[in-house]
Amino acid sequence: MEIDPFIFRLSIFILSIFIGYYVVWSVTPSLHTPLMSVTNAISSVIIVGAIIAGLAGNSDSTFNTSSIFGFLAISLAAINIFGGFLVTQRMLAMYKKKKKDK
């Protein structure tokens, strides 16, 4: 009997939860705010679904109800991707060590 592909995806999911668990516990508490903004940015990889939905309309109907929702989702996710990564970059650039010059 063949294994349903769903089971493989479920395995990936469960293992990723464990990876997430161990990786996030090792994040230093002082970087918890950047952690939130970067997880925000990466969860917007949901944009791949939005792109598929947006491009699903055929050439005589670029705009149908489904693709319009896709287009809107693309913009929302893009705000998050650009906003999330850039604000994380901005925050991380501020974390500096003590200057040893004095």
Partner: peptide
């Protein structure tokens, strides 16, 4: 994507709009 429809331009426009808004917020906040 198998066949690129005219939707591609629209997709890129929406992507750009979102990206610009996001970048603007990230620098201003």
């Amino acid at each position: 994507i198998e066949n690129f429809s005219t939707g591609l331009v629209v997709v890129l426009i929406f992507l750009l709009i979102g990206g610009l808004i996001g970048a603007f917020i990230a620098y201003k906040i």
